[in-house]
Design a protein around this nucleic acid. Structure first.
Lengths: 233, 233
DNA sequence: TTTTGAATGTCACCCAGCGGACAGCGTCCG
DNA sequence: CGGACGCTGTCCGCTGGGTGACATTCAAAA
């Protein structure tokens, strides 16, 4: 971005960890199957009704994956950063759409690939498939975690846990203080942790007044990570 | 699965044998790597602290997968039936244990295989790996579903949804009425849907008095599936 | 600079459902 | 057959936090 030239698609793919260790010939093959796109902040990547036949590789920026309930309410499943893969990962046989919605939170750069191409790639590259399995497994773990949080933790703890996780995933450390550019509104945090917007607002303010965090509309700083961790249990 | 109704995603899972279509030579190989065990009802298959180096194939019976929180509370992640695979499926690199606990709800027959054996099998059999990916993907979906339920649905709806799902997964149909041998106590159902035991008891009684279901300690019968489905939304 | 719409902040009300207490009931075991 | 323990049923008081209903602040557009 800023000033420096934008790296080529090939560069991105090569440094995308799932492809790491792949020989150049295969990489070229991958390159030919995929195409690169930029998406501006707040723009959707796909809609829930589209039976997504595409796999996405997130190069830059952040993406919000959500799902709509029948009555139109939104539930945020996850927020992904650079290096993540998303789309119809499970290849769930039936072409039914997952009902998922993806939206850029940032100015975002993605590579896309046809699902069937990726699929056949997987069939010929056991290592790749193996990597993918691992990743989906890890995501599964995270959801197990979340379910368990929903059951046992009250809203304050869930919000603290969210902050900790978000900091770990996307934060940058500068001398003991963690800075996070926040792309989520209180409303969105609420949808993510399962709470009302007002509760999120007041809980965050409570944390701020206790000196644990600070925040503005641009982002957060975590001032006492360890305290937050304590609160999240 | 009443007529036009689409079978649950899980239904596919259940009825798809992961080894199906494998040639005899490979099957023999698989057979040699694995061993068969019986486990009596209520007995544990593995404990949370054991870094499970084993993959389990459930042949008969039912297994409860749960996780313990730091303070010793139990959270039930899933109940699995015949045909399911479980264990350290994600191969999450680090040998850290998942904190999971597996317990037989039935008299149960399982096959076990060393994780590394299964792993190398996967590397040589792309199709198998591909199938596994699919399955984990479906399981991921299920958890997404559950998180979303926890957020949007009240306890009554969640219990109704639980009954419907349980019926689809494990029920047997006899002339319009679905019978399920229930291996879970009210307490366990409570842990599964995220509610207090008392609430489960009284909600089930409410459903019974409305003629939707009937139950004793041995099991359930679903008398009006469609009504239950309606209640679960 | 003004406008305007969205994001935050604060408050009061209210109820689903958690948790404690205790009374029947099965069922397994000595 | 009697004890005992775990499961089920029922009642109830208390509270976390959801739901409106505002007022306020911010930032992008005009």
């Amino acid at each position: 971005m800023s000033g420096t030239e934008r790296p080529s698609k090939f560069w991105y793919l090569k440094h995308f960890n799932i492809f790491e260790g792949m020989d150049d010939a295969s990489m070229k093959q991958v390159n030919d199957m995929s195409s690169m796109t930029s998406v501006r902040s707040q723009q959707p990547l796909y809609f829930p009704d589209q039976p997504t036949q595409t796999i996405f590789f997130l190069k830059e920026g952040h993406v919000k994956i959500s799902r709509l309930t029948e009555d139109g309410k939104e539930m945020i499943l996850d927020v992904l950063g650079p290096g993540e893969i998303f789309g119809e990962l499970s290849f769930s046989g039936s072409g039914e759409s997952s009902g998922e919605l993806a939206q850029a939170l940032d100015d975002t750069v993605i590579c896309t690939m046809k699902k069937e191409d990726f699929e056949s790639l997987l069939r010929t590259k056991p290592e790749l498939n193996f990597e993918l399995t691992k990743r989906i497994g890890l995501r599964l773990r995270r959801f197990e975690e979340r379910v368990s949080e929903m059951v046992f933790k009250d809203v304050r703890k869930r919000i603290a846990a969210f902050l900790v996780r978000y900091a770990e995933d996307f934060g940058k450390i500068k001398g003991g203080i963690i800075t996070i550019r926040m792309h989520l509104s209180h409303q969105e945090i609420a949808l993510l942790v399962g709470a009302a917007r007002q509760t999120v607002t007041s809980t965050l303010n409570e944390f701020r007044s206790k000196g644990l965090i600070d925040f503005s509309r641009q982002g957060f700083t975590i001032k006492q990570l360890s305290e937050l961790q304590k609160l999240s249990r």
